[in-house]
Amino acid sequence: MAATDNDLLTDVAANLLTDEHRTVFRDLLQGALQQLIEEELTASIGAALHQRTDGRTGQRNGHRPPRTLSTPAGDVELAIPKVRKGNFYPSLLEPRRRVDQALWAVIMTAYVKGTSTRKVDDLVKALGVDSGVSKSTVSRICAEIDEHVEAFRSRTLAHTDFPYVFCDATYVKGRVGRHVVSRAIVVAFGVATDGTREVLGLDVGDSEDEAFWGQFLKGLKTRGLIGVRLVISDAHEGLKAAIRRHLQGVAWQRCRVHFNRNVLARVGKAHGEMVTVEGTR
């Protein structure tokens, strides 16, 4: 597609998102979502509105008060159908849907990076959620996402051997209490015997010293990490000491990427390309 076509599409999209047109799209979206809800009820009870079928399993009984759903086009009001026996609740309004998780991830990331609650509220409104987000909602969102993260971090690793394990760390700014400080994030991913790769674990601490790395590696073993023959990492002394202590008998190899970075940091810019080319041979 030509660049002019991309520019045209950009202009069209910008015009469609103005307040003048937003109402139209919100109404269209509301009608489509309401139709999806009614179709789901039809599938659930085995009959459409005013339809007689031998396989009917329930009867419609009006609607509950409307439920507000926040969308990029604005808030929409959706009526929830009732049935005479049993309960019905549309799946698209179930909590923790992926569309909600995506919005929640934006809120959580902004909050963790130190953005004030007021600015997070402005961000959410800019995304089309007219009601905004309160401080208690931000806390609830972060708590629910933490549940998913913790489930991933604590899952078992005993389903296969991981003969090769890569370890690394980085530092990012994060909120601790009322302050935003630098925090160490350590991560390990393994290569299984069939060649597949998998993130084994990650953790956050004050610094990547031997004690922190040791606790991290010990946790991987507790979760079932077995079959390790080689660990690849940078030459951080704390990490190397933790590997010797908690993964006894496992070989260690310096990561070539980190090694090349260390070398390039000690040579002049004029010779950097030559060193890089020679190092890749």
Rank of each mutant, 00 (worst) to 15 (best):
V129L: 13
L93M: 15
F88C: 07
R56I: 05
E150V: 05
I80T: 13
T115K: 02
P72Q: 06
K125M: 07
L41P: 03
R98P: 05
P72E: 05
F162L: 06
K113A: 12
L92W: 11
V112F: 02
G114S: 12
H63G: 02
T42P: 06
A47V: 04
Y111V: 01
T71A: 02
P90N: 06
E39K: 02
K125W: 02
P72N: 05
A79T: 15
T57C: 01
D161C: 06
D75G: 07
S91D: 10
D130G: 05
L127T: 02
T156K: 00
G128P: 08
V120F: 00
Q59F: 07
R84Q: 01
V106N: 09
R52N: 10
I107F: 09
K82D: 03
H50Y: 14
D54E: 11
A158H: 07
G62I: 08
V112Y: 05
R96A: 12
V112I: 13
S134H: 03
R97C: 09
R153N: 02
I80F: 08
A79L: 15
T71F: 06
E40G: 12
T57K: 07
W104A: 14
R140H: 09
C142H: 01
K125V: 02
L69R: 10
G58F: 04
D130Y: 01
V149E: 10
K135E: 12
G58Q: 13
A102G: 12
Q51W: 02
Q34T: 08
Q59M: 09
A105F: 02
P66Y: 06
T53D: 03
L28A: 11
V124H: 01
T160Y: 05
R52V: 15
S134C: 02
A105S: 15
R60M: 15
I45K: 04
E39G: 01
V133D: 01
I37E: 01
Q101K: 03
T68G: 08
D100P: 00
A126L: 15
G74L: 09
E150T: 13
G114V: 07
A126P: 08
I37V: 14
V99L: 14
R140C: 03
A151I: 08
S131D: 08
S91L: 09
L33G: 08
F162S: 04
K85G: 01
T137N: 00
T156W: 00
E39A: 10
F162G: 04
Q35E: 14
R64W: 11
S139Y: 00
P81Q: 05
T160D: 04
R98Q: 14
R153L: 10
D75T: 08
S44Q: 11
A43Y: 11
K85C: 01
L29Y: 12
R98T: 13
A43D: 08
D54Y: 10
S131M: 04
A47H: 12
A48N: 11
E147V: 10
E39M: 03
G128I: 14
P90C: 02
R52I: 11
V76M: 10
L157H: 08
G58D: 09
L103C: 09
Y89I: 13
L103K: 04
A48R: 15
S44K: 08
P90T: 04
E150R: 14
R96K: 14
T160I: 03
Q30T: 13
A143N: 15
F88M: 03
R155K: 13
P81G: 03
R98V: 14
Y111K: 01
R56K: 12
E77G: 01
Q59V: 08
A126T: 14
T156Y: 00
P66W: 00
V138D: 00
L36T: 09
H148R: 00
W104Y: 10
Q34W: 06
P66M: 04
